[in-house]
């Protein structure tokens, strides 16, 4: 079996929680912190940690603003994040396809 697709999996994206976040953000232009937390059923702390990791990798952009006197944090995928997510999907599909052919 060719180990290439395994080696190309991005460790930042590969982690379960972060991959779920990126999948949710890939389906929609942006999601608020609360929407993301409720959708993924994560704790605030867990979600914040993953957001920070993805932000440091340049995959997620955060917007903080006030709406109706309430703080609103919005997350969206950056172009690099969308590309990394796309690459990850392609690698996963390659792994599945490779196993089926062998």
């Amino acid at each position: 079996m060719n180990p290439e697709p395994f080696l190309q999996l991005d460790r930042v994206v590969h982690e379960k929680g972060r991959l779920a976040m990126m999948a949710a953000l890939a389906a929609t232009p942006e999601l608020s912190f609360t929407e993301l937390r409720d959708l993924l059923q994560m704790t605030d702390g867990n979600l914040t940690t993953h957001i920070r990791t993805l932000q440091e990798a340049g995959f997620v952009a955060i917007t903080k603003e006030y709406r109706d006197n309430r703080p609103l944090t919005t997350c969206s995928l950056t172009t690099a994040g969308r590309a990394a997510f796309q690459r990850h999907i392609e690698r996963l599909a390659e792994i599945v396809a490779q196993a089926r052919h062998s």
């Binding site: 779920a20 949710a24 890939a26 389906a27 599909a93 599945v96």
Partner: peptide, 17 residues
């Protein structure tokens, strides 16, 4: 595992939208 991850990703993308 790869197939399961792809399935989870598909479900999450549907739910997010």
């Amino acid at each position: 595992q790869a197939a399961e991850q792809l399935q989870t990703i598909r479900l999450l993308m549907e739910r997010a939208a």
